[in-house]
């Protein structure tokens, strides 16, 4: 099978890869590029654990073909911290104990960052609906919502 050559930008870096037509962006990130921060919880867009942004839009990378990202800009959880400085959301997730097992955490952080870029002052209800596509089975969401709201407040003050 002929592989497809793709040039793209991931977390600000120019990246080239080869993939097969049916490979998803999630497959490419995890299996070809070693970016295993995005997780596969369902493969059908129902859990949000593979969330990344594609040209600044929040998407499930399991529902994007690798071949589609030619010339696009992708950000993943690996691009969220600035060197050793954590993003305020990452810091607040730690402070609020907003993760238990941590498998949903990368996807939720990517999704929450997209929320705060669009809406710096979300209500609790807006936050809950925005994150409804990110399943968490451990926390009951309470501390996640608190962490996002707290990070939003801090970022507004910054």
């Amino acid at each position: 099978m002929t592989q497809i050559h793709v040039s793209t930008t991931i977390n600000g870096d120019a990246v080239e890869f080869l993939c097969e037509a049916q490979e998803t962006l999630l497959d490419v990130l995890r299996d070809r590029l070693g970016l295993t921060g995005a997780k596969e919880g369902c493969g059908t867009g129902d859990c949000g654990a593979c969330s990344v942004t594609l040209d600044k839009r929040l998407v499930c990378s399991c529902l994007v073909l690798g071949a589609e990202v030619e010339g696009r800009e992708i950000t993943t959880i690996e691009g969220m911290a600035d060197g050793e400085i954590l993003h305020p959301l990452q810091q607040k997730f730690l402070e609020h104990a907003a993760l238990q097992c941590g498998i949903c955490t990368p996807g939720i952080l990517v999704a929450a960052k997209a929320l705060l870029e669009k809406n710096p002052d979300p209500t609790e209800t807006e936050t809950r609906y925005w994150l409804a596509g990110n399943l968490c089975r451990c926390t009951g969401y309470d501390k996640i919502i608190r962490a996002v709201m707290d990070a939003a407040e801090q970022m507004r003050g910054a």
Partner: peptide
Amino acid sequence: GIDKVTGRARFGAD
């Protein structure tokens, strides 16, 4: 914690 908020933590499939 830091491993788990930065995507570094290695789970079963990683």
